[in-house]
Amino acid sequence: MKNKNLYNYILGIADNSLILGQRLGELCGHGPSLETDIACTNMSLDLLGQVRSYYQYAAKIAGDGRTEDDIAMLRKEREYFNVLLVEQPNTDFGYTMARQFLFDVYHFLMLTELEKSTDLNLSAIAKKSIKEVSYHKRFSSDWIKRLGDGTEESHSRIQTAINDLWTYTDELFHQTEADKAIVAEGVGVDVTKLKDAYYEEVNAVLEEATLSVPQSKYFQKGGKQGIHTEHMGYLLADLQYMQRTYPNMEW
């Protein structure tokens, strides 16, 4: 492949949205209220829409006849580059919202930069996505505040979720070799520069939600190198089920 770095860079972004969209899709029909159910599905649909644009572009770059679905569903686990955060399970609504919030704040900052990319395709996708993600961030931040400053039980549950997921936040700002090369070309976003703004914003919301900011300095990483948590295999088993069971068919 001629532009392997760009291809991998796009997958890194797209896989985050794919895996998070898949996780949210699991909840459809199982939310705490009808209204919340519909809202979470909207976020899932936004993310999967973004995913399709990215993979279609990636398929064009690969130029080897693979389609968006081949890229989305026919890679091995080690070839998915999403961060560990987005693959974490829907343990309860607190985890779902905490995961969403911790990702949305990053996602919004990243897209704001990606919109300035010299790659017109990526810039256009970012421009469209940013409005969707801006809403996601609002939605998840509001829920963090409701749960944090709600009942004793909800406060404790959302604090636990934030504490548990915190360990996956640092990875958002890591760069792979492909990332570095693409940043140098003016196409990619230098995520290392987003870190301060990220924690500032996250901490402000947590404070408003009467939650404490986890102090742990131990972080997990690996997703960007394709080394995932144990949850990932099961998620992919679902995602890939049809494509693996019935290879080379159209649906």
């Binding site: 209220s33 209204e35 919340t36 519909i38 809202a39 909207n42 809403y135 939605f139 509001d142 409701r146």
Partner: peptide, 20 residues
């Protein structure tokens, strides 16, 4: 109509339910 705990949530839910 719809159910919501507060006005902000009612607006968000209205957006998600009635303007999809």
């Amino acid at each position: 109509s719809l159910h919501a705990a507060d006005a902000e949530m009612a607006l968000e839910n209205a957006r998600d339910v009635y303007t999809r």
